[in-house]
Amino acid sequence: MDKNHFLENIAQRLGRSLGQPPHIRKEMAGVPEFWAERSLTPRECLEKWIENFTSQGGEAKRFDSKQDLTESLDCLLTELSVQSVGAWGKTAAWPIDIENILDKWKALRWDETWPEKFSHVQVGITGCFWAIADTGTLVMKSGKAEGRGTHLMPQVHIVILRSRQICLRLGEVFSALQQEAMLPAAVHFVSGPSRSSDIENDLSIGVHGPARVIAFILQED
């Protein structure tokens, strides 16, 4: 069927004419006012984010200095006895520079290889653009060096962020996205490891996406 017939039928049944703008909404777009009016200090946001993220099966580690963070990241990769590491490209929007670790572990870089290769990567390391305290969520945008497969395909996802990237609610991320010239092709809101309850209601982790999501947070005041 063609577009105009399809839409005209809808308009006609609603007693409207096609091309007529929607009725004006009074105070009913978006979240209730009490929700939008809350505010938390950055420290409270960080605490809330960690509480929610870990309750959803995510793991969070916080550090006061960049050096502690990179050392701990190196230790974790050693502990995991990782064979293959993949990461966002060098030009990606890294919140913190961890190139020395990525070099040491000979990380496959997203924009220097084929996406299929990331299916065999054990650990994917990325930054994120925002995090959301209300729901313990990480926000990743697609881009040339920030491939979607970096955080989705490996068994373990390690994400690097600064505490000031954490906002309180989802709406703040939407506002920030809408200020950009154009929305990216994909925005992913990830709130913990991949989960399913399809086998007798028993929680299974990592059925498609990562089984572990580990956040390395640089705490700034």
Partner: peptide
């Protein structure tokens, strides 16, 4: 409290 993956696609790659 939240869905694990919410993905928002705006057009092809």
């Amino acid at each position: 409290n939240v869905i694990t993956y919410m993905s928002m696609l705006t057009g092809p790659k």
